[in-house]
Amino acid sequence: MRRVLPPVIVGILALILWELFVTLGRVAPFILPAPSAIGAQIAEQRRNIGEAALASGANALIGLIGGTLVAVLAALAASRFLVLGEVSIPFAAVLNALPIIALAPILNNMFESTSSVPRRLVTGIVVFFPVFLNLLRGLREVDPVHQELMRTYAASGWTFARKVRLPGALPHFFTGLRQASSLAVIAAVVAEYFGGLQDGLGARITSAAAFTAYPRAWAFVAGACLLGLAFYLATLLLERLAMPWKQRLTS
């Protein structure tokens, strides 16, 4: 209770203040609509929000899974062949600082703009970097005591990788995946701002804003937030299942 109560109180207070600020201050809806107006729109548009969230969610999920798979394979290769790792880490770190999302219009040209592939591809590329960088760091970091111990057991390279390197890198992998899962949703939603097929949350937000239906646009933003939250919580759950030893620690 002590952990849950303060954020809940803050949340309710913020909503009340927001409502009062908008209604008493007569703030125009294009500046900031009232939470009650947004709530009403959420209720009214729940079917549309659900459909758009499903489309964006599918894009995010496919991009997340694809990007993660490629990143895992790349990280395994880069940890196996040291030269590859030395070259790829600074390269990936630099690429990660670039606005990758801006690739969307190019991908729309390379594929047809009526397909879902460009959005999923952008999502996959965005997802790749945090997973690759974190997992590779985990794979390269081995406790020196474990290293010596496995040598005293005369363990082969493959046994060492399976029993020490891979499980040891799991926490790093999930750090990357947590970041990636939020980025996936963001990328899948925002990629629609750059054109291409318009059936997800991003397109709904822009079209509602274009029709100056601001409460409706905010309602779709709320849908996007819920989608992001769902992805994040799913990743947390997966992490708990994959690493029972961490969970028992905190309990």
């Binding site: 406790d143 005369a154 020490v164 040891g168």
Partner: peptide, 17 residues
């Protein structure tokens, strides 16, 4: 290679997983 000895270090070096 024939595991004629067992070894323990200052850090326990257990595998947390």
């Amino acid at each position: 290679r024939e595991q004629e000895y067992g070894i323990a270090f200052q850090q326990a070096g257990l595998f947390e997983w």
